[in-house]
Amino acid sequence: MSSRNLNATAASLLGFLQEGPLTGWDLVAAAQQRIGDFWSLTQSQVYRELASMAAVGLIEAGERGPRDRRPYSITDTGRAAFTAWLSRTPDDETIRFPLLLTVLFGRHLPPGRLAEIVAEHRKLHAERLAAYQQAREQLVGGPVDPHQLAPLEFGIRYEAAALAWFDDLPAEIRTGERPHQRGANNSQ
Rank of each mutant, 00 (worst) to 15 (best):
I59L: 12
T77P: 00
P71H: 06
F82V: 00
S87K: 01
R67M: 09
G78N: 01
Y72W: 05
P71Q: 08
S52C: 05
A61I: 03
G65P: 09
A80Y: 07
L58E: 03
A54S: 14
Y72R: 02
D92C: 04
G78V: 00
I59T: 11
S52G: 13
D68T: 06
A81F: 08
P71T: 06
E93M: 06
D68S: 11
D76G: 10
T94K: 13
A81N: 07
E63S: 15
R69A: 09
W85I: 08
E60I: 04
L58V: 03
R88F: 07
R69P: 01
A54N: 08
A55Q: 06
R64T: 14
D76P: 01
R69H: 14
Y72M: 04
Y72G: 02
E63V: 12
S52F: 05
S87M: 01
G65L: 10
E60F: 05
D68F: 13
A51M: 14
A80H: 01
A61R: 11
M53T: 00
D76L: 13
R70Q: 13
D68I: 06
D76Y: 06
S52I: 02
D76H: 03
P71S: 09
S87Q: 02
A84W: 06
A55E: 09
A80N: 08
A55M: 01
T83E: 14
T83C: 03
A55H: 02
R96P: 00
A81E: 03
